[in-house]
């Protein structure tokens, strides 16, 4: 398939890929291919983790997991774009989309590469919390690698003076990028919280969403930490 060619080229020779993005070469093809292939990989991984608790959950997770990553991107991208051009970047919106999709595509491939491992544990160990923790661990690892590469890619691509106007210090741009990555993480975690369940409990009927939740991810975390530290 044509679409995977682009992804493979990205994985094999990132430097050349970034050069092409910088020079505005074949961006439409890249965007379409990265979107399709990363959706597919996420969907496969989602289907595997959904398989923990039945067919409907498989289907639902296969849609939810790609949505989690891609919707977060859609939500956060305008912020990055406007802040970045304000801080002197000369890239256009398509280039930003491509760069962001690059990160997501890398994450999707890495997740996909864990699929056999997950599948093995899914078959051999039937324990909800173990499976949950395993998934959180895998997502944390793949996510941080993907974000690291994105971060480096952005720094490389904007390190040439014709892309960034030299008046703006590289330091403030670095802070900006870090801030954005944090925003992405925050929005992503809340979206994940809203879209739950991805795994579904054993032996319980299928739920499209967990209706009971009240409040949000962050207060939940704060409360958990509070309980953990012995407050309340």
């Amino acid at each position: 398939m044509n679409h995977f060619d682009t992804l493979i080229r990205l994985l094999r020779d990132r430097r050349k890929f970034l050069d092409e993005v910088r020079n505005n070469e074949k961006l439409e093809t890249k965007i379409a291919s990265l979107l399709v292939s990363s959706s597919l990989f996420f969907a496969i991984y989602g289907a595997i983790i959904g398989a923990y608790s039945g067919f409907l959950q498989t289907l639902s997770s296969a849609i939810k997991l790609p949505a989690l990553y891609l919707l977060t991107l859609l939500i956060c991208l305008p912020t990055l774009y406007f802040f970045d051009i304000l801080f002197g970047s000369r890239l256009n919106f398509k280039q930003y989309i491509t760069m962001a999709l690059t990160a997501v595509a890398v994450i999707s491939v890495l997740l996909f590469s864990f699929a056999p491992v997950i599948l093995f544990f899914l078959i051999s160990v039937k324990d909800y919390f173990f499976f949950l923790l395993l998934n959180v661990l895998i997502m944390a690892i793949t996510g941080s690698i993907g974000v690291r590469l994105f971060y480096k890619g952005m720094r490389d691509i904007t390190s040439t003076p014709d892309i960034v106007s030299p008046v703006v210090s590289q330091k403030s741009r670095r802070y900006l990028l870090q801030g954005w990555v944090i925003l992405y993480g925050l929005v992503g975690s809340q979206l994940g919280w809203t879209l739950r369940p991805f795994l579904g409990f054993d032996g319980e009927p299928f739920q499209m969403f967990r209706p009971e939740i009240e409040g949000n991810f962050y207060t939940q975390i704060a409360r958990s930490i509070g309980i953990f530290l012995g407050w309340n």
Binding site: S39, A43, K64, A67, L71, L74, T194, L195, Q207
Partner: peptide, 26 residues
């Protein structure tokens, strides 16, 4: 493939919106 990708965007957004508008009514 396009329909698939569109579904990935549309279904969860519908889920979010309908949850918010109906007050978590399954």
């Amino acid at each position: 493939l396009t329909v698939g990708v569109a579904l990935i965007f549309c279904l969860p957004i519908t889920l979010l919106l309908s949850r918010s508008l109906s007050g978590d009514n399954v």
